[in-house]
Computed example of a mutant assay.
Amino acid sequence: MASNTISLVIRPRGRPIKNLVESITIERTDPASLVFQKIADASNFSIHRLRITKGSDGSPIQNTKELTVHDTGLRNRSAVDVKDLGPQIAWQTVFLVEYLGPLLFHPLLYYGRPLIYGTSEPPSELQKLSFVMIMLHFLKREFETLFVHRFSVATMPVFNIFLNSGHYWFFAGLNLAFWTYRPTAPTAGPSNPLIMYAGIACFVIGELANLQVHFTLKNLRRPGTQDRGIPRGLGFDLVTCPNYMFETLAWIGIWLTNWSLSMVPFIGFALYYMGQWAKKKERRYRKEFGDKYKRKRYTMLPGIY
């Protein structure tokens, strides 16, 4: 009867990894995640910096407890290649930092109007409304990051945080706040108050529906696993990612009370990136669930995108 204990040959790939061990021993029935843990522990290296692939075909080994070492195809004396992904930062931290920018800039320019714009005039009613909406939106984002979202990938390269944060800190933060709260801003409002009420309705419906979708997505994945189910419920019969659809609706609501062209680049970039993420998710759903999944023609905006 074959021994349950096997030895794996460890090979560096790319940049050298200091203290990388040459081999590890592991049980065939151990979870695949233990391959990552053993290599990290033996090498005094962060587990989140490791990308591990099979030496035979280059396919990635999943860092999961749902598969055993034997399930991955690894056998005694199999070679695995280990790559250093560089310094990492937790995705949760990235999100918290991203959304912090607008939460700092909007109060700064809203309450600092006398100093920044040299005006003693109080903000208009619609400027007040825009301020409340934008603050509620990003406070909701921070709440979801802390208590709702589950991240399938724990970390990202640390240097990417500057690119990710720049979008929110500049376009949704400094840029949007500067033009929204200036004395000559078009937030004196449309002459028809129905437009303002329509904006409020779009914002409230979009934010609440977006939150509901995020709870649906959260409940698809069991804590500590990467397994997902097929999402069903509010908006999922229309598009692949209704969370992006309702996000767009909420920002349309903000724009209807803001009327500032400074919002165009932020919404434009957001639509582009959300659209790309939605397309990738549609492809993943089709590949992962096959015929069980009802394919969507539109991934984000029904009839449009």
Rank of each mutant, 00 (worst) to 15 (best):
E22H: 10
T72I: 02
V35L: 06
P242Y: 05
S262K: 00
S78T: 08
A185V: 05
K281V: 12
K292I: 00
A185K: 08
K140I: 09
L74Q: 10
F143R: 00
L108T: 15
I267D: 02
V132T: 02
T29G: 10
K140W: 09
K18R: 15
F269R: 00
S78M: 08
G112F: 00
L194P: 02
P190H: 11
R182Y: 03
T93S: 09
I10S: 11
G206A: 10
Y168R: 06
L74Y: 11
T155W: 02
R221N: 02
P265S: 01
V148C: 12
L271F: 13
V153E: 15
Y273L: 13
Y117M: 09
N4S: 13
T248Y: 14
T257W: 01
P12G: 03
R232Y: 07
D57S: 03
S3T: 11
E282L: 01
P157E: 05
I161W: 01
R28V: 02
G189I: 03
W179Y: 15
P193H: 04
R49S: 09
S124I: 06
L271R: 05
L217P: 01
I252H: 07
T180Y: 04
A177E: 11
I195H: 07
S43L: 08
D237M: 00
L96Q: 14
R49C: 11
C241K: 12
K65I: 01
G73Q: 10
V239P: 14
A198P: 03
Y181K: 05
G235E: 09
R28A: 02
A250I: 05
L139Q: 07
P193K: 00
P12N: 08
F105D: 06
V9W: 01
E121F: 01
D227V: 13
N44V: 04
G55L: 11
P265T: 05
T25Q: 15
F203S: 03
H48P: 00
N19A: 12
G166H: 07
L34M: 11
R221Y: 02
L136F: 15
